[in-house]
Amino acid sequence: MPIPFLKLPYLIQREVLKQLEFDDIFMMSLCSRKVKIMIQSVSINVDKLIYVLSDHAILVSVGYHGRFQRPQDVIILERVEAIPRESRIRINCEIECRYTTRRITDVIKVYLGYLSWEEDMFLKAFQGHMNSLFQNQPDNTVVAGSTNALYNSTGISNVNNADIFIKESDVLNTSQLEDFMNFHPTLNSIHLMFPFTGPPLTSESKIMKINGLSVHNSGQRTSELMANFCKQYLNLTIATYDLNDWKQSLRKWKRKEAYGNLKAVITCTLQPNFVLDFDVFAAEFNLQEWDGERKPKNYRLDTTISHIQSEEFDCSKWFDMQQDGGGKWASILLGPNVIDFVVWD
């Protein structure tokens, strides 16, 4: 039964859109300019647009910051050699692309095919179309699973976050990482899921100047990451550090020689024989037990960086330390497998 949707009262149109998932709303937005304008008037908000890049395709999803919110797949973009007339649609009234559906393990996936030689134009038009559908400006997150995918990401602009999971067979090196950072000057955070190789990073390396850096399996590169990071959030898992790494970093912070913007360093290690001489440590940094007066009990790690979970730490069992000359306070948790350091504003 056909319905003259655009002639229905606005409240009805809005209610119908509220009951649709975003993938359907996206398909509707391609119907006509008037439908797109109507969708824009409904004020849809999403926190982020996620572009999952593989060698030949890009999966586009919408996501939210909430911890338990799963991203919702919208469409898969793929390169094609031709666009048959019967499946032709236009993005932003300019670029033609091909619409297809395929059943993959009982789930119907929707594909938009674009001519490979029009990739840059298509991605620009696609991003423009997507962004115009939202009332807010969602963050753009790129997820890359291969070094090829890293280079394929150049068509996507205004990237804020990147999750890079390049496995051992195709190891990422630091120069590729720097290239990637050059392609995307708007990057605000990076999450590296696997170890990387290449020349050592310095405090001048671009990746050290990013607001949020998470390195899973940081291993032997932990020391250089800790020593050279100069922004807000550093998260290192399966890290390999010794007490000296921490001592040097804390000294620089305490003497205000570095880490002026630091908010939190979260680390965990699987080293079985990591030994912490607490008394020496406590004496050097003048660690003090929480007394309930200097600062509140709970520290709220509040960040929109997706790979650094927003959470509240109970710091009553942590130790406090202060920068020289009556500077900022920080709290540190010293555990056998975990050392967390948070700075109070």
């Binding site: 319905i3 003259p4 949707f5 655009l6 009805i12 509707m28 119907c31 006509s32 008037k34 559906t101």
Partner: peptide
Amino acid sequence: TSYCCERIARMLRGKNTQEMIKVITLPTA
């Protein structure tokens, strides 16, 4: 109103652009 809207939403769910154009009676390209 809500049930009517859900009914319309159901007509649109899982459809591609061309099919949606037919449902919401828009002129095709």
